[in-house]
């Protein structure tokens, strides 16, 4: 179990029912719906995410977790619904502006920029760069000082993520796990208040998982809120303050890890009705090589799977090579 963080303490008295109000929500979603043809991929009536906490978003494949991420971050448009982030209505804000409000995401399939160096990857993450404007870019004196600050910040983060020695390597030369680290570090360059991590541990070897986990756990102490999607239940149970369970686009349950693990609705959603015993909660049928042990795997009876792939099908092809 996670050590008692301030967010966990704040959430202690919150009733574990779907859509429950939180003491200090940073993200509030209302009636968010996304349909692909006849299929409702996301149908979230009400969700609040506690500021400063680590909230896990779990659910079987095709539950709509990634689609929900895409909606919140402007990468996809909902058919209905609104959401507020830190007091701002982000419902119609395009993806690139979402980052400027302080919400940054990573991707299920890592997007290390392969032909940029690790340092360039990092520096790209800084927002409000004068040198990113066409005319000012032509006059180095106008952006050099800021560039130096950005570089200093990047070095600090790279050191923390143990990538300091890799700064001149190309993104594409990193291992899968290092790319995950780089993507997370790069996201922090945005200086976000909310970090949304889509399967941060997927495809990472167990040794690196531990170090990644620690990095995620440190984020709240740096003033950030974390929402992450993860299939590895050991990870979820270990670091989350709060767990939101999705199934077929809807929120089936939410609560602190201990409550969710006992929730019969959740067990039904994962294992299917009639197998409601808790011991089944940590089975590990390995998904073809991508996930470490402890994955809950359900052969999804839903066609939703395909729709999640829409967003990153192209990258999946790349990664297959």
């Amino acid at each position: 179990m996670a050590e008692q963080t301030s967010a966990a303490a704040a959430l202690a008295g919150v009733e574990p029912v779907p859509g429950v109000a939180k003491p200090d929500p940073i993200l509030i979603a209302d009636g968010v719906q996304r349909r692909f043809g006849g299929l409702t991929a996301v149908d979230v009536e009400h969700l609040e995410v506690q500021r400063g906490g680590i909230t896990a978003l779990i659910g079987p494949n095709g539950a709509g977790k990634t689609t929900f991420f895409n909606l919140m971050t402007g990468f996809d448009r909902p058919n209905a619904g609104t959401w507020r982030f830190d007091g701002h209505d982000l419902s119609h804000v395009p993806a690139h502006q979402v980052a400027r409000y302080g919400m940054v995401r990573t991707f299920q399939l890592t997007k290390a920029l392969t032909r940029l160096s690790v340092m360039e990857n990092m520096k790209l993450g800084a927002t409000g760069q004068a040198g990113e404007r066409f005319l000012r870019a032509l006059v180095p004196a106008l952006w050099r000082p800021q560039e130096a600050e950005i570089e200093a910040r990047a070095i600090e983060l790279l050191e923390r993520f143990r990538l300091g020695h890799m700064r001149d390597e190309l993104g594409g030369e990193l291992s899968g796990g290092q790319r995950k680290l780089l993507e997370m570090a790069r996201a922090l360059m945005v200086q976000p208040s909310l970090v949304m991590l889509d399967e941060p541990m997927a495809g990472v070897n167990p040794a690196l998982t531990q170090s990644l986990l620690r990095h995620v756990q440190e984020l709240p102490s740096m003033g950030m809120t974390v929402i992450f999607v993860e299939h590895d239940m050991d990870v979820v149970m270990e670091i989350s303050d709060w767990i939101v369970v999705m199934g077929q686009g809807r929120i089936l349950a939410e609560g602190p890890p201990a409550d969710v693990a006992r929730n019969p609705d959740v067990i039904d959603a994962y294992i299917g009705a009639g197998h409601g015993d808790e011991s089944r909660f940590t089975p590990a049928p390995r998904r073809s090589g991508t996930a470490p042990a402890g994955v809950i795997e359900v052969t999804p009876p839903d066609e939703d799977e395909g729709t999640e792939d829409l967003a990153d099908g192209a990258d999946r092809r790349q990664e297959d090579q």
Partner: peptide, 20 residues
């Protein structure tokens, strides 16, 4: 310049650039 860096990041993966 940082401007050119953004162009190269778009060449590599425009969704990553957008997310940043």
């Amino acid at each position: 310049s940082p401007w050119g860096r953004v162009l190269k990041s778009i060449r590599e993966d425009e969704d990553a650039a957008r997310a940043l």
